[in-house]
């Protein structure tokens, strides 16, 4: 600030601040418009009739507004079913992650055992290798187990944790003072007590992140449901939406209504967990 006033001495400090604020807000507004316009376009198309959708020039505010597009989506494709399926998968994955990630993170954060550092490094290095190398053999494994077109391939791995989430929770646990563990041991607690009664309650903010990240991952996952699920009744929202695209290429109003429906749950979650999310992202930033 002070340096700029050196270059614009005539403006004076207060005038300069006002100048900076006005230009600052202008830039912010223009960028906001750029980011929001596609979302607006999606939302307005979702409220148009087929004729309105293909009007030239486009109707910016659809008149009349077709609210029943949203109910049409549920009639044309089993969208309610997709919703339920995805919520179910998200729930099971969250449970799986909560169990496995906390246990493993506690092991790495609190207990000493030969090979701990090497194993931890191995775990971190798996983050650098794209999991897609494992896609084909995983598919073969699950198909030999007769698990194609079931939810097993989409849920079972969650019970073995996720390296990134384990890292996140472990870092969080490392910040809890060891004195607490020691005091509990003196009081006769065993290791599981310390984990369950002391560390876990204190790790709650990190567990919120586990829930949010897992939900978003499951909700967005496309490739795995695409590979493993054949039965439309088992589709997730993402898979169902792409299926809808293939079946009705030109019904853009309904496709956009479906897209709006697909983004609502993660958006609601985002508004509730915004603080944790953005904080968690800066933790993610430490990973490298």
């Amino acid at each position: 600030m002070t340096t700029i006033s050196g270059h614009f001495p005539r403006l004076g400090l207060r005038g300069l601040r006002r100048f900076n604020n006005v230009s600052g807000y202008t830039v912010l507004m223009v960028l906001a418009a750029v980011f929001m316009v596609p979302l607006y376009w999606m939302f307005s198309t979702a409220l148009k009739s087929p004729q309105q959708t293909f009007a030239i020039p486009p109707e910016w505010i659809p008149a009349p507004v077709q609210w029943d597009n949203f109910s049409k989506v549920f009639q044309e494709v089993p969208f309610g079913r997709f919703y339920l399926n995805t919520f179910f998968l998200a729930f099971v994955n969250i449970v799986g992650h909560l169990i496995s990630v906390t246990l493993v993170a506690y092991g790495f954060a609190r207990l000493r055992f030969p090979g701990r550092n090497i194993l931890f490094l191995v775990m971190l290095s798996t983050l650098m290798i794209p999991y897609h190398v494992t896609l084909v053999p995983r598919f073969i494994m699950f198909s030999k187990l007769g698990m194609i077109n079931t939810y097993w391939p989409l849920t079972l791995p969650a019970f073995t944790g996720s390296p990134f989430l384990i890292f996140l929770v472990r870092q969080y646990m490392m910040s809890i003072p060891f004195d607490l563990d020691e005091a509990a041991y003196i009081d006769g607690a065993n290791r599981f007590d310390v984990f369950w009664r002391i560390i876990l309650p204190l790790t709650r903010p990190a567990l919120m992140l586990v829930i949010v990240f897992t939900f978003i991952d499951v909700w967005n996952d496309f490739l795995q449901p695409l590979i493993y699920l054949n039965d439309p009744d088992m589709f997730t929202v993402s898979l169902g939406l792409s299926f809808f695209q293939g079946a009705r290429e030109t019904n853009w109003n309904l496709l956009m209504a479906g897209s709006v429906l697909a983004m609502i749950p993660p958006l609601i979650l985002f508004f509730f967990a915004q603080k944790q999310l953005i904080g968690g992202i800066s933790v993610e930033g430490l990973k490298g």
């Binding site: 979302l39 376009w41 030239i56 909700w219 967005n220 993402s238 697909a262």
Partner: peptide
């Protein structure tokens, strides 16, 4: 910050579909 972050939250399939429509040569935004 929330507004700029929001597109990142939109599921990939949905955001891709939105863009296919935005980029429609005749009727697109």
């Amino acid at each position: 910050r929330t507004l700029y972050y929001m597109p990142y939250i939109v599921p990939k399939v949905a955001s891709s579909l939105v863009w296919v429509w935005v980029l429609n040569p005749r009727y697109g935004l």
